[in-house]
């Protein structure tokens, strides 16, 4: 039950290419896709989690063959279509136009400086404490929306790790991406020993991977 974007630990990939590593945009259209995506992200029609879901929900063959900004473009088109932005007219959809927040140049710097913090303090008491060992649910996927968005990587499913940070309660992407509310959940950084994730043949027993995990993804204390 994973989507193609969930790549952590996937086998068979080759060497890391440093080609064009400092080229931010390879062409004018990439610049335009980037700036349009950021601008429309402020429209209020969708949120960052929905935008991530639009990219990861591309068909696997497209996800792999599209370049980075082709994925952004495909996702932007899908988000605009889903929200009927392309077909909307002022006459037919006046309510829709009222809802739309157009990004104005004078607000760009302050909006980018503010960003979209996801910490929502005092919402829920954390069940687990730093130092405790916990097991991740042996279920990978969105519990409310079939095939929906999740930020739990498949490679930690059912694995046990130790909590090393508690970050407070944060917006829960599995809910937020589908406009089901923010439903903030306690967020932890959990450290997994590599041999627990990849097997005993991993040669360095001390090496670890740390994954940010919402409480909802945790099964139980060990």
């Amino acid at each position: 039950m994973t989507r193609i974007h969930d790549m952590g630990g996937r086998l068979g990939e080759g060497k890391i290419s440093k080609e064009d590593e400092n080229v931010k945009f390879k062409s004018k259209w990439e610049e335009e896709v980037f700036s349009l995506t950021i601008a429309m992200g402020f429209s209020g029609l969708w949120n960052l989690d929905a935008s991530r879901f639009a990219r990861e929900a591309l068909e696997p063959v497209d996800y792999l063959r599209f370049s980075y900004f082709e994925k952004w473009l495909a996702a932007l088109i899908n988000l605009l279509n889903e929200n009927e932005v392309i077909s909307a007219t002022k006459e037919k959809n006046s309510a829709w136009f009222k809802k739309f927040r157009k990004l104005e140049a004078k607000n760009v710097s302050s909006l980018l400086e503010r960003g979209s913090p996801t910490l929502r303090e005092g919402i829920k008491k954390n069940k687990f404490e730093i130092g405790e060992k916990v097991k991740i649910k042996n279920f990978h996927g969105n519990e409310k929306v079939s095939g929906g968005h999740t930020r739990l990587p498949n490679y930690v499913k059912g694995r046990t790790g130790r909590i090393i940070y508690y970050h407070g309660t944060h917006v829960f992407p599995d809910s937020h991406a589908h406009f089901l509310g923010e439903n903030p959940e306690p967020l932890y950084s959990i450290e997994f020993v590599n041999q627990e994730l990849w097997g005993k043949h991993y040669p360095f027993s001390e090496d670890t991977v740390i994954v940010d995990i919402w409480e909802n993804y945790i099964c139980e204390k060990i």
Partner: peptide, 10 residues
């Protein structure tokens, strides 16, 4: 020891 941080949250 090598520690890898996977940025899964914000």
């Amino acid at each position: 020891k090598v520690r890898v941080w996977d940025s899964t949250s914000e």
